[in-house]
Amino acid sequence: MTSATDVLLWGVLPYVSFVLLVAGTVWRARRDRASWSARPTGLAEARLLRWGSPLFHYGMLAVVLGHVAGLAVPASWTAAAGVTDHAYHLAATWLGTVAAAATIVGLVILLYRRATVPRVRTATTRGDVVMLVLLVTSVVVGTWATVQLQLVDGGYDYRTTVSPWFRGLWLLQPDPSLMHGVPFVLGLHVVAALVLFALWPFTRLVHAFVAPVPYVARPYVVYRSRGGAA
């Protein structure tokens, strides 16, 4: 039933990834906080960025919300809320496809920009390249999985396989067998994402953790005393 590969991929890798994500973030926050930045390149080129960046980021936010809804919320809850399986499936598929389209269009614009604008290209580090390869893999394979499984093949119910497995990870009761029969594209998507999470703290992706939410409740002008906070 569950092979060693299954255990490795669906029982061990998620925890390795999680530990690296948390420990790496803590390490970077303590050790190298000065490098914590989104590393903007708007100075080098503004026209492509203006379209690509919001498309990608807003698309990505929608995608993340969709994943949270799909993975964290059990099917029984939505059923209890009166959402039929068919309605859920329809909404998830179409909203997901639109979000994925925005993300991919944005990503293509940004990648084109990064490759062709000399100054942006120069500002690209090796870490950026590794991160981008993983990110592109996750996004492309994930979209492919959605289109292939949901639109072409007529529907795959991940809410009985991937979702319970995901929730089991958080409850410290990993059940790799749930992932045994998962289609290859979906599995690849999950693995790519897990590797991306593991490397997250060591790339520019850390900027996602410092989303400036406190700004909404702050007085406009900040005063500070020479000695420290005022």
Partner: peptide, 12 residues
């Protein structure tokens, strides 16, 4: 500044 990184010094 969304991060609150920029500030005006009280003293001067």
């Amino acid at each position: 500044c969304p991060s609150g990184a920029m500030y005006k010094r009280v003293e001067d």
